[in-house]
Simulated scan of single mutants.
Amino acid sequence: MTSRTTAPPAGTAPVPVVPAPAPPTRRAPRRRAGRGLPLLLVLPTLVLLVVALGYPIGWQLVTSLRKFGLQQQFGAPPEWVGLDNYVALVTDPTLWAVVVRSVAFCLVTAFVTVAVGGGVAVLMNAVGRWARLVLQVSLLLAWAMPVVAAMTVWIWIVDWRRGLLNWLLVNVGVDGAGGHNWLAEPISFFVVASAVVVWMSVPFVALSIYAGLTQVSTEVVEASMLDGAGGWQRLRYIYAPLVAPVLSIVILLQIIWDLRVFTQVKLLQDAGSVANETNLLGTYVYQLGTGKGDFGTASAVSVLMLLLTVALSWRYVRSLLAQES
């Protein structure tokens, strides 16, 4: 069909054709006026964080390049020795023994803590309301107990003269348990120290993992139960992958905390052990700095301790960044 144009009737003026308006050109989006406001609000916190962390680290670096001896204790300025403190540490077998001991203690304690805390978290997720409430209150009380007060109880438990542990072993019938000093031998010392550190760290790990378990969808769990998945299969294929970010953060924090543990080991050493055989990095720095007044070497060990912490936690930091991206 061909379309015909209808002519206007006679005596009627033709209607002018108005051209269609041109489409508006797209302008570049204007920058929001308040775009820099969040950065401005965060800036004071960043400055405070840089000052609070940068000054101690800078002081440690400068101090590690100096020598402190007997003259410095009487007011003489420290002598600038450059990297001599680091060279002396690298060639010192005592430092490497302390490093190996600290890394082994850190890794074993951290993973045992996460395993025990994860078990307690699964238990809290499985029991009833009142049992869960009792567990949570008990964990909070253990976590809130001051370190010195808790260590007083633990030292009384393992005391070789009137300790509860030896008393229980004697009543059970263990030969040679009476008067046994658990802090005299390095192996038994670190077993006790690990038990103390794990006991103090389990509440944080258990409550953190339990918080992650509560975020798992009940529909997913019920669907897996309908498909015939058992308790171990649900824990392995449903709960563990969904709680993996929480586990990564908890393991990272435990490695950092257990590597620089000081108070528990120091108080146990004072209770009856040989410090040179049971030193970790934290107590070794304290022994060099406060005990011997060698602040240059102590600062060098602190710098090496910082580098070791970064090296041990770098893998977990990369995994966290990958999860964020």
Rank of each mutant, 00 (worst) to 15 (best):
S3W: 04
V18H: 10
A28V: 14
R30S: 08
R31S: 03
A33K: 12
L37P: 00
P38M: 12
V47H: 04
V47P: 04
L48R: 05
L48G: 08
G54I: 00
Y55I: 06
I57W: 03
S64A: 10
L65V: 03
K67M: 11
L70W: 11
Q71A: 14
G75P: 00
P78L: 08
W80D: 13
W80C: 08
T91K: 09
P93N: 02
T94K: 13
V98L: 06
V99W: 01
R101C: 11
G117V: 07
V122M: 09
V122I: 01
M124R: 03
M124P: 00
R132Q: 15
L133S: 15
L139F: 01
L139V: 00
A144V: 01
A149Q: 12
I157C: 12
V158Y: 15
V170Q: 11
V172Y: 14
A177T: 02
N181S: 09
A184W: 15
I187R: 15
V192Q: 01
V198Y: 03
S201F: 13
I209N: 01
L213R: 03
S217P: 09
E219M: 05
E219L: 08
V220S: 02
A223N: 06
S224A: 04
S224L: 01
M225C: 05
W232D: 12
W232S: 09
A240E: 13
L247R: 01
L247D: 05
L247N: 06
I251C: 06
L252A: 07
L252C: 06
I256Q: 11
W257C: 07
L259F: 14
L259S: 01
L259P: 08
S273C: 00
S273Q: 01
V274C: 06
N276P: 04
N279R: 10
N279M: 13
Y286S: 02
Q287A: 08
L288M: 04
T290K: 05
T290P: 01
G296Q: 02
G296K: 02
A298I: 03
M305F: 15
L306H: 07
L307I: 06
L308Q: 11
L308K: 07
T309H: 08
T309I: 07
V310H: 14
A311I: 00
A311H: 03
L312Q: 10
R318P: 10
